[in-house]
Amino acid sequence: MTAEVLSLGARLQALHAPDRDGRRANVVLGGGSVEDLLGDAAYLGATVGRYANRIADGVLPLEGTTYRLATQPTGHTLHGGPDGFATRLWDGVPVREDRQVGVRLRLRSPAGDQGFPGTVTAEVTYLLDPDGGLSITYQAVTDAPTVVNLTNHAYFNLAGEGRGTVLDHLLHVDAAGYLPVDGNLIPLGPVEPVAGTPFDLRHARRIGTCITGEHPQILAAGRGFDHNWVLDGTGLRRAALLSHPASGRHVECLTTEPGLQVYTGNHFDGSLISPSGRRYTKHAGIALETQHFPDSPNRPDYPSTLLRPGEKYRSRTVYRFSAE
């Protein structure tokens, strides 16, 4: 396996993995130009923050003070705001740990950045091991109370980027609950059981079968998934398994995070052209975003994303690839 990481957005731009016959292909979607990466492809493979996913109405209540955050045209804050971490140039250095090689990238986000309090120094480390694993480790510190929720926004297509859709992929998610959303993709509140819904992925199911029905939550997300699954267990454990029967490729996602946002690329419309010259159409890739829950600062019943001075934010996700 080989990986390509860009300092723009600390992003995973390419990841080449072999199929069952040993033929390698890039299995993550990428932008074809810097202009794309600062525009329609801004989140492809990027490290998003300070707060991955949505904060309703850009309102951040924190220890008695309400902060107004920068918002997107929807009126909500998504992935840290319109000028979040995905648009920044990170400082990177090569690293080697045991048999693993990779890169460590760092970014300083000043107090008031996109409306967030506190100066945050964030760090992300990508390490590739010879056994087919890519680990992504996040750390962050702050000089004032704030919220931090980082993730990677890679879109996977195990057939190869730009080679059709992920509707023929099989997806398993280790979660008995998920968060239904409103029309703006803001969680409605309590965790709901997946049993009896298209969100029950406790056994592997074909993605196309799950998202082609008339379930109101599938329609709310633009005929697809764009929801947070509440993962079973704690610590570093399996969150999901994505498989492509035709190529034999599998990727197992492990994480320390409590949630997994599954997004089936519902917005791709063919206008974005990949580095290989192919167009990304609807469902061209699937994102498996390990993270805390959307809108947690406004939901005291969700796991907290509060980070205080003297504390260190830590998160780890591993993608293990295999072929059979």
Rank of each mutant, 00 (worst) to 15 (best):
T66V: 13
A144C: 00
V34T: 15
P117T: 03
G183K: 12
E161A: 10
S322A: 13
I136W: 07
T151D: 07
Q114V: 00
S247V: 03
S109K: 11
V28I: 03
G75K: 02
L127V: 03
S315T: 01
Y51K: 08
L8F: 10
L167A: 03
G208W: 03
Q291G: 05
V120P: 09
L78C: 01
A175G: 08
V181A: 09
G248E: 03
D129W: 04
S271P: 04
I207W: 06
R50N: 12
E192M: 11
R96D: 13
A86P: 05
T281E: 15
P82G: 00
I211A: 04
L8S: 02
D226I: 04
A220L: 15
D129G: 12
L15N: 02
H292S: 07
P216D: 12
D226H: 09
G277F: 11
V230T: 12
L62M: 09
G224Y: 08
A176I: 04
I186M: 14
V59H: 12
F293S: 05
L69T: 08
G112N: 12
I207S: 04
R223P: 07
L62Y: 12
T142R: 03
P190D: 14
P187C: 08
E214H: 14
A221M: 06
D129V: 02
G265I: 05
A17W: 15
